[in-house]
Design a protein around this nucleic acid. Structure first.
Lengths: 154, 154
DNA sequence: TGCGATTAAATCGCGTGCGATCTATATGTA
DNA sequence: TACATATAGATCGCACGCGATTTAATCGCA
């Protein structure tokens, strides 16, 4: 199946496809590229979108709680959440009972956007991709299991 | 299965686990965290490691060819490869026949490191993770198929 | 041959991830 | 109460990814 075109730039396309880590890495890039134009409509990046979804499901979370869900820490989340605050999607407020804790809440506009992106965006994408609910669930389950094994190994 | 500890920070751990995109994203983070200490021994980042593996398989590639395999472009690869050059792992040289093209070649030391990381690192990791060759191959095939669908949709 | 269009790579700015460190608050134990 | 320890966030520097633009070389076609 070697075509003339494959002798030049495409010669080695798929050359790294025997590495599972690369499958995960490159699929992540592809997901990002697919999401980007949709999220641009809301002015959100992909990790910002994840924070909005997490807050849509449970509002008024601490930075640490959000980090627990996204597997990120304050060094990444603090600036990200500050950008969400600057965009008017969330508020950041020190907990009065424990001043070490910062509580993140959706603004009214944030709630509206979070609702939108939680439902419309994934549905719109998965339909465009052409993959069944069952395939998604099975693959996702394998990935979550793998992720847990990787975490245990680390 | 709700434990007392789950009422606080861990309450919503796994809250985003119904999103396939998040499964891919978070598994990518976990892979990176697992690889990091091993690659630190060579002074390589994960994408740098991918370039070294690609060059181990076929040396003397152009920036565009490497990008075709890693799904990246020169805006990402040029600075990355310059760092590999600064570290003494590769050389960068304009093609004499077509001066637009930059050819990347492993140095002697680069060849040695590339050999090492191509074989030892993945084997060492997968053994630590505890996942069979068959599981790896099946999951990876699903991911490559998904990636291709995502690319077509983009 | 000449000249616009195309191509390969480089550059720039911004938003992540993350190791390392710092600050401020809370906790525990004498 | 006092002081060491622990915890939650914040800050900083560096290396990606990537959209947008720029530069330089080649190609195509009259």
């Amino acid at each position: 199946m070697t075509t003339p075109a494959m002798t030049t730039e495409n010669a080695a396309r798929g050359a790294l496809d025997d590495f599972l880590c690369f499958g995960v890495y490159s699929t992540g890039l592809a997901f990002n590229r697919l999401y980007k134009p949709l999220l641009d409509r809301y002015g959100l990046t992909y990790p910002q979108y994840l924070v909005m979804v997490a807050l849509a499901r449970r509002d008024d979370q601490t930075v640490g709680e959000l980090g627990g869900q996204l597997f990120l820490e304050s060094n990444t989340l603090t600036p990200l959440i500050k950008r969400l605050e600057a965009a008017g999607f969330v508020t950041r407020q020190r907990d009065t009972a424990d001043e070490r804790v910062v509580r993140v809440r959706l603004t009214q506009r944030g709630q509206s956007v979070a609702q939108d992106v939680s439902t419309c965006v994934p549905a719109e994408l998965m339909e465009a991709v052409g993959i069944s609910i069952e395939e998604i669930a099975a693959l996702n389950q394998s990935l979550v299991t793998l992720r847990e094994k990787l975490q245990r190994a680390a």
